[in-house]
Each structure stands twice: as structure tokens, then as C-alpha cells.
Amino acid sequence: MMIELCPSAEIAEGEIKRVDVEGLPAVAIARHEGALYVFPDRCPHADESLAEGWLEDGRVICGVHFAEFDLDTGEVHNPPVGCPNLSFFKCEDRDGTVFALLTGDNANV
């Protein structure tokens, strides 16, 4: 089931925003070249918030150990040892509101 997250206008170009979802772990929403990306607000390595990181050249940069995740594939670059790839949730902008598929434990790319 797609879950409503927030008005898409709240996600500025080049920014990452954290959104708390009732009953589920918080998610992060990023906008790059107009497109929206939704992913867990938790780096796969050390449980730190990715919304406190930033976007750079089409990648999410974790602000803690500077791992870089491609926005399209989630592939990790410059990882600390043991840091897996990032997963993304399916998302849509429906008439100005961001919806994402947050079902189950695993993110849906």
C-alpha cells in the first residue's frame, strides 16, 4: 500500500528531508534534477541519519563516514568496511503529494 508522506513542494531541489511515519522507521526524501527519491533515513552502515547528509553529483552522501550512494541504483562508493548498498522505496508524486511503498522489512527499489 502506498503511504502518504508529505507535500512534494517541501522537498527543494538538491535537498534531503526526513519524514516520520507512524509505526514505521523514518524515511528520507531527496530531490535531484526534479525527480524524487525515497529511502530509509538510516545509513546501512552505522544507523545514522542520511537526511543529515547531503546530495552531491547525483549521490547521497552520508555525513558520518562519507559513504556515497548512487541515487538511481543505490550502489555504494567510498564505503566504510561492511557498508552495503542503499535501497530505495517505490515512490510517486500524486498531485503534489509524495507517496511511497514502505511495506515489509526490505525496501523496494
Binding site: H45, A46, E48, E52, G63, V64, H65, P80
Partner: peptide, 14 residues
């Protein structure tokens, strides 16, 4: 792996 921002604050650990 303790990590500090350019503001000196501890951002996270390993």
C-alpha cells in the same frame, strides 16, 4: 571511526 563535522561536533561512530 569517530566522525566529526567541520564544526567539530561528533556526527557518529562506527
Amino acid at each position: 571511526g569517530w566522525s566529526f563535522g567541520i564544526d567539530g561536533a561528533l556526527r557518529g561512530t562506527d
